[in-house]
């Protein structure tokens, strides 16, 4: 069976600096995968590489077995790979519903505007933003702007959704709501890659975790195994903490 998404030895350098080096991984349909790593580990860069914003400088990316590493962002979106941004990227003076319509019209190819609006309203209802539909996007609270990103991405009718730090800047109650929303999205059969630097957020959500450190993939395994992996602990908390953990495990 071909994987939904497969990365083969993907690297990306900026100038002389390799932000992502030699990463290989696969994503199967229906999975929720956590992509974790300390700040600056190359998580967002990896998403940018997959979505074509910063094309890979080496390696191959296959989507349903077809290479996509040379496609432009809009072409990758049209193939059903959507993402949200760490820093939300709305169309500021368009209304909330128009923002979502954009996703439906272009990536998902809904031809008529009336139909796109109807589709958009469905996603707004799903994400709990229906009441805000006609407000300009730049008037929303941060939590709602993050929901808008989700709704916009869903309107693109993706089968892969990459969420870049959807919880950053949210309080505990808001995070819990967001996690419920993500579970509901997954229940629709959309494969999700969730990027986090908080371990505890992903452990409750993902069955599998991929860890990046200094641009390299250092672990890719079931959640329980990854969080006990000394290399992961070291990457996160420094070597002394890792040693202590090792002693305790022995």
């Amino acid at each position: 069976m071909t994987a939904l998404l497969e990365l083969k030895n993907v690297s990306r350098s900026f100038g002389g600096v390799k932000a992502v080096r030699d990463v290989s991984l696969t994503l199967q349909p229906g999975q929720i995968v956590g992509l974790i790593g300390p700040n600056g580990a190359g998580k967002s860069t990896l998403v940018n590489v997959i979505t074509g914003v910063h094309p890979a400088t080496a390696g191959e990316i296959l989507h349903n077995g077809e290479p996509i590493q040379n496609l432009k962002p809009f072409q990758i979106s049209a193939r059903g790979i959507a993402r949200t941004f760490q820093v939300v990227q709305p169309f500021p003076s368009m209304t909330v519903v128009e923002n979502v319509m954009a996703g439906a019209m272009f990536a998902a190819g809904v031809m008529s505007m009336t139909e796109a609006r109807a589709v958009a309203m469905e996603h707004l209802t799903f994400t709990g933003l229906a009441a805000q539909a006609d407000r300009p996007a730049n008037q929303l609270t941060l939590a709602n702007r993050k929901r808008l990103e989700l709704a916009k991405s869903l309107a693109m009718n993706p089968h892969i959704l990459m969420l870049d730090e959807v919880n950053a800047g949210l309080n505990t109650a808001e995070i819990n709501q967001a996690l419920d929303l993500i579970r509901a999205i997954a229940a629709r059969g959309i494969s999700i890659v969730i990027i986090e630097h908080l371990l505890k957020v992903v452990t409750g959500l993902c069955s599998r975790i991929v860890v990046l450190h200094h641009g390299e993939l250092i672990a890719d395994d079931a959640t329980a195994d990854v969080i006990n992996d000394p290399r992961v602990i070291e990457a996160y908390l420094g070597s002394r903490f890792a040693e202590r953990q090792m002693v305790r495990h022995d």
């Binding site: 914003v53 809009f74 979106s77 049209a78 990227q89 709305p90 272009f106 990536a107 693109m156």
Partner: peptide, 22 residues
């Protein structure tokens, strides 16, 4: 769609790209 897409570009070109606009 052209006008709608152009407006998206005007507001945020990077987001327009990601949303699937050529």
């Amino acid at each position: 769609r052209l006008g709608f897409g152009l407006n998206c570009i005007k507001q945020n070109e990077d987001a327009a790209d990601i949303v699937g606009i050529n």
